[in-house]
Design a protein around this nucleic acid. Structure first.
Lengths: 225, 225
DNA sequence: TGACAAATATAACAGTGTTATGCTTAACTA
DNA sequence: TAGTTAAGCATAACACTGTTATATTTGTCA
């Protein structure tokens, strides 16, 4: 009874979009995609609070157990979103630096980061701790974050003399990252009620510009073109 | 049946520590103190994950409903800890500035902040979002945070010329706060696995020194003595 | 003493993440 | 082609969360 038996009608209705094709895993892959899509949508709308296993399962049209078959439960869902977030950071930092001064490169990175953080606030909050305290990034997720940080380093080390030691390059990137991230985080929490300014992004750029200029002055032998 | 009836034995055992005394509210005040103390201890040990209403009630020797009588449920507990955290920031910034240069004042504030964040990591994480996403600071808590920020402003504005406009003073303090907080937050989350350095506090001070020096250079007419 | 308000205890409710139990379905093998 | 086998699914349950309704005890005041 392989192909001789006709499939039940409800399945034909369910899986019209693409023919069942040869491999059965395709349906599973579809379920996996649907789950991740549903999770992303719920996440974008209501943040992490809207992300319950049951709500994701309902929105994706699967049973709750499906979240555990295709992902590693809620941990797996959050991990996927965590990686998605750092992937976007990584992609945002993939811009051409030709015909740009060191100052322009760094400011471009800073602006891209700030815009991203503003646009994907949910991902940002997830990455930086607001994960309900029952989620630890997996090794894969950590690797993605490390990859993104390396790209930050590779951009910011243009301000240093060539052949600078790696720890110094890391340190420069860490300084800049801390400054930018600190602004985003303060915006998300403490200062949102204290500072009346709406153009906080320009405030951040302005503050970080001071630091960048100080770095340029401190390392006059940099590769600035 | 007021005083004529002898109290149950289990209650006498419960309240031996101090005699029931004249006013009945005394016991309540004691219960409130016990609850807050138990919550603080659990919080210090296991962070916010260890703070369940039932565990607090058990540790304090009261019923779960006591958390709702004396506090406003979990929201009230977290609010108290939130205020406690900002109170410590406020107190840490209460140091004498006599015989100190502007640079020394700012660095002293930065070091105090970093030490505090290191020592009371639980409070810090609570203040900056890791609250399980079901807690919003009350008006009283926000007021405490605003009070602490004002003290940050009052210290950092020494780097500005006298009679600088208030928004500029805020901006300078915000820059410094963002930088310092960014370091703490990165330490708590992303970079803990990337950066091998253990002396991150000195790294932070070093990075922020660059910014402070840039500010001093930018505002030569400051009140530096 | 009796009435009233506050604090407490028990239990339940609705929600969470997770998992054990069956059952269906698909795929591979002889 | 027939049969074994593994994977996916659904139902229900478990242990836990914050919160609350009900009922009982407690203490204060008139």
């Amino acid at each position: 009874m392989r192909q001789t038996k006709i499939k039940g009608p409800e399945q034909l209705i369910e899986k019209v979009s693409k023919q069942p094709s040869k491999i059965g895993k395709v349906n599973s892959a579809h379920a996996k995609k649907r789950i991740l899509l549903a999770a992303s949508e719920l996440f974008a709308l209501g943040g992490i609070s809207a992300l319950s296993v049951r709500s994701i399962a309902d929105a994706a049209g699967v049973s709750t157990i499906g979240i555990y078959s295709h992902f590693n439960g809620k941990q797996g869902i959050l991990d996927a979103l965590f990686i998605e977030g750092y992937q976007m950071v990584h992609d945002t930092m993939a811009f051409s630096t030709v015909d740009l001064s060191a100052r322009q490169i760094l400011l471009k990175g800073v602006r891209g980061y700030l815009t991203l953080a503003n646009q994907y606030e949910g991902h940002y909050r997830l990455i930086f701790g607001e994960n309900g305290n029952q989620y630890e990034p997996s090794d894969e997720a950590r690797e993605m974050s490390s990859k993104a940080f390396k790209r930050l380093v590779s951009h910011s080390c243009i301000i240093l003399p060539p052949n600078s030691p790696w720890p110094l390059k890391q340190k420069i990137a860490l300084d800049l990252w801390a400054f930018v991230h600190g602004y985003v985080s303060l915006k998300h929490h403490a200062t949102s009620a204290m500072i009346s300014e709406q153009h906080w992004q320009e405030m951040a750029v302005e503050g970080i510009s001071i630091h960048i200029d100080a770095l340029i002055a401190k390392y006059p032998t940099s590769q600035t073109k």
